[in-house]
Design a binder for these strands. Structure first.
Lengths: 192, 192
DNA sequence: CGTATTTCTTAACTTAAGTGAACAAGTTAT
DNA sequence: ATAACTTGTTCACTTAAGTTAAGAAATACG
C-alpha cells in the first residue's frame, strides 16, 4: 500500500529515505467503510484525501435531491474547496466503496512543505497538472451532448460505469436517472 | 500596470524590491491586438498568460465549428494544457479585445522558481486555489440548466455578457447561439 | 460610401431531456 | 420471512434544446 504512494510521488520528485520516513510518521493511512460521510455541507474541515483503493464521491443536496458531481478513484487526489478557502463546504463527500485513503490535514501540509521544499514543488506540479486536466474535462463536457458524454465515460473510465449506482452517474453526466436509462436503451438500439 | 501585477502577487506572498526587479527584468509585458491568435491547435507552445487588461478566449474547432470554452479577463491566469503536458494543444487561444498581457515561457518559470522559493509557493497556492474554483464552476455547470447558467453568469460576470459576442457566450454556456437568443427572449417574457 | 461579412434574432420543425407515475428487482432491516 | 427502502427501467406527456433557413442589424473593409 505504501509503495502505491511512493510510486505516485516518484512521478514528480524523488524522495530520500529520510523524507519517506517523515511522510510515514504522519499516520496518513486510513480504512474507511462504504457509506461513511467524510465531509458535510456547512462543515469547515482541514482534510485532504488521496485514494489508494476504493472510491469516494462529491455530492450536493439541492432542493432535497442528491447531485453527484465527482468521483475520485485509485491515485486521485482531492483537496476540498473549504480547505483552500477556509469557508464552509457547499458539498458532501462520502465513500462509495470500502476504501483505503490517505487523509492529511492542512497543518501537516504546511509543516512538511516548509521542512522539505521538495513537497512544495510536488504540490505545485500536481495542482498545475490537475488544473489543466480539470479544464480539459470541463471543455469536453461543454462541447458534447449527454449521449457523447456517456460514451466518452465508457472509454475513459469504464470501471466507473460498473462500480457506481446509475442515478449517481446520471447527475455526474448532468442529466436525470430516467434520461440515462433512456439514453442507454437508445445506444443499444443503434448498435443492433 | 506593474502595480496591478504586484497587488495581485501581494495576495499570496510579499516581495522584496530585489524580487520585484527580478520579475520586471524578464520583459513580461505585452500589448496584443484584438483578434491575435496566441496559440493554435496542434502547436506546442511554452507560454503562460496573465491578463492585466482585456480578454482572451479558449476555443476548439470541432466539425468546422468554433466552440468557446473559457474567457480570461483582468487578473486571470492561464497556463495552457500543452505547457504542462508538453503535448500539442487541442485548442486555440485568441484575443477578444486589445489587451495587455503578461507572457512568460516555462523556462522563465523554472528559473525564477528555483531562484526564489517564494514564487514556487505562490504558484502552488495559486494553482490550488484555481483548481478548487474550477471544480466549483464545473459543479455548478453540471447541476444547472442552460437558463440557470445564463442567469448565474449575469450575476457573477455581468461584464462578460456585454463585452463578448453572443455566439461565443452560447458555447461557453454549452448551447447553440439560437438557443441563447430564445432563452434570453424567454427570460424577458417572464419578467413582464 | 456602399458592399461584404459578421452577428443576432425569429420561426417552423425535429429530437432529446425533464417530469410524474408505475412497476419490478434487489437490498436492508426487523 | 416479510415489510420497507433503494435502485433501475419504462411510459406518456411537457418543455426546451438542436437544426435549418431566412432576414434584420451592426461592423468591417475596400
Amino acid at each position: 500500500m505504501q509503495d502505491l504512494l511512493f510510486d505516485f510521488i516518484s512521478k514528480y520528485v524523488s524522495l530520500t529515505d529520510d523524507e519517506k520516513n517523515a511522510l510515514l510518521s504522519l499516520d496518513l493511512f486510513h480504512s474507511v467503510k462504504k457509506g461513511t460521510v467524510l465531509l458535510k455541507e456547512g462543515q469547515k474541515s482541514p482534510e485532504s484525501y488521496f485514494v489508494l483503493k476504493g472510491c469516494i464521491r462529491v455530492y450536493y443536496i439541492i432542493d432535497g435531491e442528491e447531485k453527484t458531481t465527482a468521483f475520485y478513484t485509485e491515485q486521485d487526489a482531492l483537496t476540498p474547496h473549504c480547505v483552500i478557502n477556509k469557508s464552509p463546504s457547499d458539498y458532501f463527500i462520502s465513500c462509495v466503496e470500502d476504501s483505503i485513503l490517505l487523509i492529511s490535514n492542512s497543518d501537516m501540509g504546511v509543516e512538511i512543505n516548509s521542512k522539505f521544499p521538495k513537497f512544495e514543488i510536488m504540490c505545485r506540479m500536481l495542482s498545475e497538472e490537475l488544473l489543466a486536466k480539470r479544464q480539459l474535462d470541463f471543455d469536453e463536457f461543454k462541447t458534447s451532448s449527454p449521449e457523447q458524454r456517456y460514451l466518452n465515460l465508457l472509454q475513459k473510465r469504464p470501471d466507473l460505469v460498473q462500480r457506481v449506482p446509475q442515478h449517481q452517474l446520471a447527475s455526474y453526466l448532468g442529466i436525470k436517472p430516467q434520461s440515462l436509462s433512456r439514453l442507454r436503451a437508445r445506444i443499444l438500439e443503434k448498435k443492433s
